[in-house]
Design a binder for these strands. Sequence first.
DNA 1: CAACGCTTTTATCATATAAATAAGCCGGCA
DNA 2: TGCCGGCTTATTTATATGATAAAAGCGTTG
Lengths: 261, 261
Amino acid sequence: MDDSAPSGSKSGHRKDGQLAAWGSNLTYNIVQDLGIAIVTGRYSGPGGFPVESELAKHYGASRSILREAVKMLTAKGLLGARPRQGTWVEPEDRWNLLDPDVLRWLLERKFSLRLLTEFIEMRLAVEPGAAALAARIATPAQKAKIVHAIDRMIAASRNEDDPLTSDIAFHVAVLEASGNRFYMQLRELIETALRFSIRRTNDYKGVRLASVMDHKRICDAILAGDADAAGALMRVLIQEALDLVQGAERATLAPEQVSST
Amino acid sequence: MDDSAPSGSKSGHRKDGQLAAWGSNLTYNIVQDLGIAIVTGRYSGPGGFPVESELAKHYGASRSILREAVKMLTAKGLLGARPRQGTWVEPEDRWNLLDPDVLRWLLERKFSLRLLTEFIEMRLAVEPGAAALAARIATPAQKAKIVHAIDRMIAASRNEDDPLTSDIAFHVAVLEASGNRFYMQLRELIETALRFSIRRTNDYKGVRLASVMDHKRICDAILAGDADAAGALMRVLIQEALDLVQGAERATLAPEQVSST
DNA sequence: CAACGCTTTTATCATATAAATAAGCCGGCA
DNA sequence: TGCCGGCTTATTTATATGATAAAAGCGTTG
């Protein structure tokens, strides 16, 4: 009847986001649960967000803990609070979408092709830039990491490694090799999003060797120090992913209009 | 002797970041002060981060409040904590650089041309993408906002408006017109960074009319729906800013080598 | 209609107990 | 002697509880 987490929630698979550092922590569990509840809109309707005492009763936790959890969500832009006025869910455009936790909650629990499209649009801008930078200033160690990821992708095409994680490893390695802290920040975001992007748009019935070669060409350009080529190739690669998702989005939005027009 | 904020700090100019919503709030003030102290490295040396009781004594606040502040900073990736082990400052690469507060603390209190360079590198990737998107799907209202910003810039070139805020308004308007939530998230970041970028690299001794025209051409391309041109023009514009800052960075890093090579 | 007081809710404080864990202690064994 | 295993202790965060202060909407009243 009420699917939100009672105090006994011991959901045991916490290897994700930055909060995951601590394992089983009451505050942490409440932040997770509240975060998901908020992004899925459970508190957007009438009634809004409960008052502290109600929340505490609901989770069977003390008000102190609840307040700490609420403060963390406030820091991520999801909540706001004022005396007498209570606590409320901030409008979506104030949510800190670039916070790994927030993005993960959204993708995991409120997946939408629209959101994924927008994210890939951003990747389309960011990753070519990172690849170009990497081509210029990657250290030998960073280059080695990129090469290693490519090797893994090739191995995956022979069913000797995992295609998903090796693909992610490649993109992450390029971001790290950019030497730019902001690109590196996007690492975790892109890691999260890729995990969904690839699985949803799938076409992962057997890794297409062509795709692996596309990746390898980017790697080669970076190794050769050819920034322009690296950027351009990366752009093409991601544009393909974007086309795929946008196709799916259009099909979902107007499935009957496809044939009628 | 001790320049950190005692309890009586009533610094009254809080019109910035997302935390600023509330005005004078003890928890908020402590978060600000601690955040700045952390990014400036006050707790990075030996001794590390104080234990809760010490912090509480230092700020003259209760432990509850201190814990809430620490939790907010934890949510932004600056701190970690464990029983018996105490609270510690996370390594810089785990800080949430894309959080408006964190970036602002860094730029305001630990400004470095290197950081600014990296940020502009990201803008160089992002804003052309946003401009291209805007050219495709901006609504009339969004286009009007861009035009209005250009008008303000033109007025500023005649000393009839503020050059800094009108310039910022233009870039923000483009980001908003992209219709992409992730670009819009960067709005606040770019707003913050521009405020420093422009002032530091200045060349703001009189607005150069040429620069205004460069902006106007982007605006025209967006109005005309020419995505490629809008993106390319924006790229050129930001590349110029990047060159400027990188020039300053090189001059600072090796001022004596400039002439010797 | 303005000022006052009432009420609700968060903000802040104070104190106590639980849980985690690093570090020391101690005894035994090779 | 020297090292190692487990036990004890001490420190620090995690959690709980109850009380007071301050903000802010709302109605009442002069």
